[in-house]
């Protein structure tokens, strides 16, 4: 299974990834509707933290309508027609990148691994690779 990875130490906070994301997910220029998050920690310690979807599937497990499905890339995506905005998925997400904001969209949304964020990042923060198997 593939997923998105992020090396936060390389992030410059430019948010090009967020625009590219919203453009792919919603056909909109609106970084508020992106499926990854950049936290800026300024003025101190002066670092960025990037949170991305690990495709762990916990959102899909709890979705009562089955709206979160696997796509051809093997990634979980939201079938927007089937989402009922119950928000059951949101607290389950360990990375806090499962979104319901009814003022912005009448569906939940998440990363579907389109890869556009990777294409626009100038400093190599983001990449897509096989999910590492973690031995407990």
């Amino acid at each position: 299974m593939m997923r998105l990875y992020a090396d936060s130490s390389k992030c410059t906070g430019c948010r090009a990834c967020l625009v590219a994301c919203s453009l792919n997910l919603f056909k909109e220029n609106n970084p508020k509707k992106a499926a990854l998050v950049i936290e800026a920690h300024f003025p101190a310690p002066g670092t960025y933290k990037v949170r991305v979807c690990t495709q762990c599937g916990k959102c899909a497990e709890v979705c009562p309508t089955g709206a979160i499905k696997l796509n051809e890339r093997g990634a979980y995506y939201v079938d927007m027609a089937e989402c009922n905005l119950c928000e059951a998925c949101v607290p389950e997400c360990p990375e806090e990148v499962m979104f319901v904001r009814t003022e912005l969209a009448d569906t939940s949304w998440k990363c579907d691994l389109c890869g556009d964020c990777v294409s626009v990042c100038g400093t190599g923060v983001l990449w897509i690779a096989e999910t590492e198997t973690v031995v407990a």
């Binding site: 430019c14 090009a16 003025p43 310690p45 960025y48 990042c121 400093t123």
Partner: peptide, 26 residues
């Protein structure tokens, strides 16, 4: 320099964010 800092949508960040230990300023 501790962090490269970019403006909106910038793939080539010229912003260099620094910490000056002697004065404890960012």
């Amino acid at each position: 320099v501790i962090t490269d800092k970019g403006c909106f949508g910038c793939p080539s960040p010229c912003g260099k964010y620094s910490r000056v230990q002697r004065y404890d300023t960012y």
